[in-house]
């Protein structure tokens, strides 16, 4: 389940050197202690653990990454709060992005990552042919997917919610959407879910989150279905918006790994346990998703608790 997912893809962007390019070497400004921007993970990453040398088994995926000196992550550039590129710095910021940096630090000793912009349709292929080491991209764990990739985690649990223009009445559950025009992000999992829960709803789709918000404000539809966190963020930025009800789906996010690489999977699961125990996970959450959601960090879902993980 990819939140603001355009139709899209993968890639080792072929050009180098420019800030605009997808591959972003984050070493420079994400060094622990370097002033992190709001939502940047720099400060939190200072406390992130580094694996003991003994854990980097010879011949393992971890050793390969360590020797390369860089973790290659399949992710997004345009998912606010999760994995969004900051045009001013070229840095990719957010919950998923910072977890990727923390994992890089755990393996390499430094939070050096390269983000390969991927699309939901191609993540399995990217992992299978080794273009990326891991996928941090609101990657919902399902048994079907688990036949093609290995999932560490789940590391976070989220769900779809409904946003309306303030003052709209009569919409609080997905069933209320029947017979109404509903806005959704193109190629997001919201589309099949709406089709199932509200078969009479008319769905219109737009490329990205800002387009969807604008469309809702311009009354192109009466409701906007999207990942709850994103909706909360939108509603915070824009007082015209209001999130109604509670999430009506449960999407456990996993870290995508190459299918069959059990060694790497248990290594990543160990790392998840460590950062959840020492508060780094919670710190990263506070810096990103927590900046729009009130209250303390939620309890992370139990590792391996979902079919397919």
């Amino acid at each position: 389940m990819v939140s603001i997912k355009r139709v899209a893809v993968v890639a080792a962007v072929a050009m180098a050197g420019l800030t605009a390019c997808a591959g972003t070497d984050s070493a420079s400004s994400a060094v622990p202690g370097a002033a992190p921007g709001e939502g940047g993970g720099g400060g939190v990453l200072a406390g992130a653990p580094v694996a003991a040398a003994a854990d980097i088994l010879p011949g393992s995926t971890m050793e390969k990454i360590k020797q390369r000196g860089e973790l290659i992550v399949g992710g997004s550039l345009d998912a606010p709060l999760l994995s969004q590129q900051n045009p001013a710095t070229g840095e990719v910021e957010g919950f998923d992005a910072d977890l990727g940096k923390a994992l890089a630090k755990y393996i390499i000793g430094q939070p050096k990552v390269k983000i390969v912009n991927s699309a939901s349709e191609t993540r399995e292929a990217l992992l299978a042919n080794g273009t990326v080491d891991v996928v941090f991209q609101t990657y919902t764990i399902t048994p079907e997917r688990a036949e093609q990739v290995a999932f560490a985690g789940p590391y976070y649990s989220s769900g779809l919610s409904i946003a309306v223009k303030k003052g709209t009445t009569g919409i609080s559950t997905p069933q209320d959407l029947n017979g109404k025009t509903v806005i959704a992000g193109a190629n997001t999992p919201a589309i099949p879910v709406i089709q199932k829960l509200a078969p009479q709803a008319k769905i219109i789709t737009f490329g990205g989150d800002p387009e969807c918000v604008q469309a809702l404000k311009q009354d192109r539809g009466v409701a906007y279905v999207q990942d709850e966190t994103l909706l909360v963020a939108d509603a915070k930025k824009d007082p015209e918006l209001q999130v109604v009800g509670t999430p009506f789906t449960e999407d456990p996010y996993g870290i995508g790994l190459k299918h069959g690489d059990d060694q790497f999977k248990s290594f990543v699961n160990d790392w998840l346990k460590k950062i959840q125990a020492n508060g780094v996970w919670q710190g990263i959450w506070k810096n990103s998703l927590g900046s729009v959601v009130q209250g303390e960090a939620p309890t992370p879902p139990e590792i391996g608790s979902v079919p397919g993980s």
Binding site: I183, A186, I204, T205, F206, G207, A215, R220
Partner: peptide, 10 residues
Amino acid sequence: AAVGVVELTA
């Protein structure tokens, strides 16, 4: 299709 019209491609 990119601006929400459900034509053939969409």
